[in-house]
């Protein structure tokens, strides 16, 4: 090779970055930008006959209470997510100690996260089956017939049943992330505090919690955005029927079922802004703490 390094530099930068950037623009950035454009049009998703309608789609979103009402169902996933974060933190602290078998427990509890997601939802569909599902069979076998429920049929229960699947699947992940964060706290901090006569509650309160602050915050924002975007569990389980539709299911239905791509785009933009708003808040809080 006799090309000078200066020329090579340009060749490498151009050759190595063009394709990745084209992909990024085509499948992430361009769709996001065109989403804004679509949101001001009336369009059935076929061809190019978008009709400019200004803010009409946004007006419709705020006029039809059932559209925003779907966020009520997202709330179940949010509460479930907070519970999951708390439980994960508890187990992470236990498994970060010198407990015998801690590695095995970590593997066992993390397992649901790697299981195939559609198959997992279907597994729970079997489990919740009113007549032959394992939960009701088990309750019957131990003489608790009165506890048997229509886990998916009862509109008051169904959203809890669905949110539980999400907790079941993701709590091991949160736990492992917490364990990683706990292991990065220097051991001598604890040793020093023990010498100073701190109780284990005091070391938790004044060493563990402050050190985990950042990770806990991050997890809460992820829980929040995850809950806002909840989609696959209610969709795969019941196509959003029986009062389980979330905001994203409504958006997808509006686009691909009712073929109102303009309105669906406007809904997506609204969701996008809500998500960005929360991420922005978290960053602000983080930076303030950092200084």
């Amino acid at each position: 090779m006799n090309i000078s390094y200066k020329v090579q530099r340009y060749i490498i930068l151009f050759g190595f970055l063009t394709v990745p950037l084209v992909l990024l623009c085509m499948f992430s950035l361009y769709p996001a930008v065109s989403l804004f454009y679509f949101s001001f049009t009336e369009w059935d998703g076929l061809g190019f006959d978008q009709k400019w309608v200004g803010l009409a789609n946004y007006k419709e979103i705020f006029m039809r209470p059932e559209i925003f009402g779907a966020f009520k169902n997202n709330l179940y996933y949010f509460v479930g997510g907070i519970l999951q974060t708390a439980i994960a933190l508890y187990f992470a602290i236990i498994l970060n100690g010198r407990l015998r078998g801690r590695y095995a427990f970590r593997v066992l509890l993390f397992l649901p996260y790697v299981l195939h997601s559609v198959a997992t939802v279907i597994m729970f569909k079997n489990l919740y089956h009113a007549e032959y599902g394992s939960i009701n069979v088990f309750l019957g076998a131990i003489g608790l017939e009165s506890w048997q429920q229509m886990w998916l049929g009862n509109p008051k229960l169904v959203n809890y049943s669905l949110a539980f699947i999400s907790m079941w699947k993701y709590f091991g992940l949160s736990m492992v992330i917490f364990i990683g964060a706990l292991q990065s706290i220097p051991r001598d901090l604890y040793e020093a505090s023990t010498i100073d006569g701190a109780s284990s509650w005091q070391s938790f309160r004044f060493i563990t919690l402050p050190s985990l602050r950042r990770v806990i915050e991050l997890m809460l924002v992820l829980t929040l955005t995850g809950a806002l975007e909840a989609f696959d569990i209610p969709f795969i389980m019941m196509l959003g029927a029986n009062g389980t539709s979330t905001f994203v299911i409504q958006t997808v239905d509006m686009a691909f079922h009712f073929e109102k791509f303009g309105l669906a785009s406007a809904m997506a933009v609204v969701l996008l802004f809500i998500v960005i708003f929360f991420i922005f808040i978290q960053r602000k809080v983080l930076f303030r703490e950092g200084n």
Binding site: L24, E229, T251, L272
Partner: peptide, 18 residues
């Protein structure tokens, strides 16, 4: 980073046209 923040499910409407 921006691409990461955009919720993928929501932009499918536009990705579909691409």
């Amino acid at each position: 980073l921006i691409a990461q923040i955009i919720p993928l499910v929501t932009t499918q409407v536009a990705t579909f046209s691409v």
